[in-house]
Design a protein around this nucleic acid. Structure first.
Lengths: 225, 225
DNA sequence: ATTTTTGTTATTGGATCCAAAGTAAAGGCT
DNA sequence: AGCCTTTACTTTGGATCCAATAACAAAAAT
């Protein structure tokens, strides 16, 4: 139960994301198979999946290597998420929100308010926020009613640091993190408002801006807010 | 050489896209293996890839089934391409086009002009346009200088009818098709103009609108242009 | 007659084996 | 000594085999 019940792909995903393998490092099937105590077959299958997800890339004719991710790549992945979730939000606004979606979004916004109400942040709050956040985003994407869009987003989320709930947590400066989450919460409420009012373009733009919160805001938040 | 040199994935992709397998139909590894005259191993590998591409989906615990594509799915795939290529165009405009990209785009625009100059369309022109079109789009995406964005686009292009060069060709009405390509050519020139002038937002919007050309325009073009 | 249980079959997942292709290394030739 | 060739080894791709499991069918019991 310790680790073997998780699928090979997700285990490898985690290791690659955590930088356990050096970028550019060549991954041999045999080596990985031995490392995980399985045969080559499941490893070969997993490699194909990871390749499609963009975490591995072919190293000539000689198997796969770990894909290297620059800061620019992370930035792009976040921006891709922005335009895709923006598309989802616009679709939802234009077609109107079903009542249950309204209630669901409202619920997670209330949750967010409660979490931030006390005016500061504890380390234990991080996971809760992550949960709230991914439910909020998930509700919107799910309600956009398009598997194609949802799939595109979820594929993009496999890239390290691209997922909406992978907010960089700087435990050293919980004060700044609090400001960041406060702003994110505010974004959520604005987006909710736009969605309710059928304001497709506004919802889309807010969503796109919201995605950047983990990237460009740190410096600004330090002093301005 | 006839068919065996192409990879299994692309052959299956083509068959699925062509509707050779019924949507929802369960694909057995054994059956496909026999059909292509190979063993189960390469089929299993291919299925994982096709699953990531969104052409297959898991059928419970029992292998894979052919993903069903509704008209709405096609629409969404085109719209996803729109926002992604729009992002690419904006990036390119904001960072400025290198000289060789300017020349390349200019070249393919000239090619397009030449093709449409004679004022009507022949069946043999379709492939040429497809070539010109994919070079134009490819140049922009390539010049956007982001593997993450490029990968997201190319993954989306694996979906049937989502790729930029998969314009629906209605050989019955080459007159209307001519109008469509004429408009597409005009779009290309506008986009080029916007890119040259560093107009990021405009380039993005034009690109998004351009993507829809295969979807919503047929009816309008019949009478208005 | 319907439902549950049990046995059979079909199908996937994992391991191993063999062949093909590529890489590295060693040796020979100029 | 340097370069080319040949050889040995590493590594992937494909085929086959075995085990685990899920679907299917048949039979028995309520």
């Amino acid at each position: 139960m310790s680790d073997n019940d998780k699928s090979l792909v997700s285990r490898l995903r985690k290791l690659i994301g955590a930088g356990h393998y050096h970028p550019g490092e060549r991954l041999g099937e045999e080596a990985v198979a031995e490392q995980f105590g399985v045969s080559r077959t499941p490893v070969r299958l997993a490699f194909r999946t990871l390749e499609q997800e963009g975490l591995l890339q072919r190293a000539g004719k000689r198997g796969f290597m770990v894909r290297e991710f620059t800061q620019a790549d992370v930035h792009c992945a976040v921006e891709v998420r922005g335009v895709l979730e923006g598309l989802a939000a616009r679709r939802l606004a234009e077609r109107g929100m079903p009542q249950d979606v309204v209630e669901s979004l409202d619920f997670w916004i209330q949750k967010g308010r409660q979490l931030l109400h006390k005016g500061y942040l504890l380390e234990t709050d991080i996971n809760q926020w992550s949960d709230i956040n991914s439910h909020f985003h998930g509700s919107i994407v799910g309600a956009a009613d398009s598997r194609v869009v949802a799939d595109a987003i979820s594929r993009n989320n496999h890239l390290p640091f691209a997922a909406a709930d992978s907010i960089i947590i700087d435990s050293e400066d919980l004060g700044r993190e609090f400001k960041k989450l406060q702003l994110a919460q505010f974004h959520h409420e604005l987006i909710f408002q736009a969605l309710k009012s059928w304001e497709g373009a506004r919802a889309e733009m807010l969503m796109r801006e919201h995605a950047l919160i983990g990237l460009r805001y740190p410096e600004l938040l330090a002093d301005n807010l």
